[in-house]
Design a protein around this nucleic acid. Structure first.
Lengths: 219, 219
DNA sequence: AATATAAGTCACCCATCGGTGACTTGCGAA
DNA sequence: TTCGCAAGTCACCGATGGGTGACTTATATT
């Protein structure tokens, strides 16, 4: 006992057989593969090879391939990643500029997060209760934001939630579309800086129209 | 010779070995499977089983599984299916109501065409030159429409193409999303009649804002 | 009726998939 | 130092994937 303690503390070498570390490696490999090749590449052989472990360990530790992937999805709260966007903006009011900033932030975040793209694509392609949980969490967070905007639109003809649903959906589709099809949508390039500016400006305009319309009706 | 002719004409039975018919069967099965189970189910064994033919014929007639699928995509001009939506509307002018009708039509058509949903999903998931061709054809057709709207928006701050790019993208995403996730987006249900009405109204409002803004700026 | 050829059938190849039983080996406790 | 057990290895399973060689059979021509 003393000898093993000594050896562990004496040199920095870690034990070669560490269940916890192996589990972490597998979970990490799920994320890496998801990011690199998408959810379709999440195969037992792939993951084990990436983690440089035997695939048997997937079944020893997580029961099944699905168990490992579920564990990965549970561990990483993806909605929190999107929540981080709104950390800089104040959460007391929801002025037009703030809304536009949040939507732009969503666009830029999603554009840079290949992993998030794959998860959204995954949600569109397959029925998975865990993926639905992620979506519902995201909805709950969004609802908090919308409650701040209610004072502007209550009693007006502007359905601010519906308009944002359209804009958020548009952002999602456009980014997914741009992954493999670098052509245009309605003549607007989705991959160039110029096209993105056009889209941003359109979003800004729509949001401003919402607030203007609501203000006019309330006069 | 006479005997065979007689047999063919005498009874209505067709020859059992008909290359053209077998090819048609295979092509038709591609469509049927695509509609029923999506592009992921387009396997050689599946298609052959559905057509009640040996899978060898796929390779005899089309060279490969990909060749068969490509032949199917070439045969069916999918953009023409979406074009049919606009057949009822006049193509001389593009008033707000007409644009709204076209967008609503896109929504309803896509909602009912499972095959089209699968093709759009396919476009998002995989790189395929033939699928890109379909998209480009669709773009060319859309551009014809937008040229009719230029007189309203030229020289104004309204980028009508960008706003329509957002709305069309939103429609696509919302319908794909609704396939497996019957929850809400930004609090708006995507599967109920009520939610759809909210979205339609929002689309209508945005389009009207475009024309109003352009008219005001031109005064 | 005989025959050449195209149409269609069938068994089989190899790669990959998720998953497992039986084995070996390193670690920690006594 | 010994020893039990968990950690890890490895060969292998059945199912399924795309694809093919060699065979049989129907059909049109002579």
């Amino acid at each position: 006992m003393l000898s093993t303690m000594k050896r562990r503390q004496g040199n920095t070498q870690e034990p070669k057989r560490d269940k916890q570390k192996s589990m972490q490696k597998l979970l990490h490999s799920v994320g890496a593969i998801l990011q690199k090749d998408g959810y379709k590449a999440l195969k037992a052989n792939n993951i084990a090879a990436h983690a440089k472990l035997d695939k048997k360990l997937i079944y020893n530790y997580f029961g099944s391939l699905g168990g490992l992937i579920d564990a990965y999805l549970k561990k990483n709260d993806f909605w929190k990643k999107t929540e981080a966007i709104t950390e800089k903006v104040p959460l007391t009011d929801l002025k037009p500029d703030t809304v536009v900033e949040i939507l732009k932030g969503q666009f830029l975040f999603l554009e840079n997060s290949v992993e998030m793209q794959h998860i959204i694509l995954w949600e569109l392609c397959e029925k998975n209760p865990l993926l639905r949980d992620i979506l519902e969490e995201r909805e709950r967070f969004g609802e908090q934001l919308f409650q701040l905007s209610d004072k502007y639109f209550k009693g007006t003809s502007v359905n601010f939630r519906a308009i944002n649903a359209l804009l958020v959906s548009a952002i999602y589709y456009i980014i997914l579309h741009a992954r493999y099809n670098n052509n245009t949508i309605c003549g607007v390039s989705t991959t160039t800086e110029k096209g993105r500016e056009q889209l941003f400006k359109a979003i800004e305009q729509i949001i401003n129209w919402c607030y203007r319309e609501a203000a006019e009706e309330r006069k």
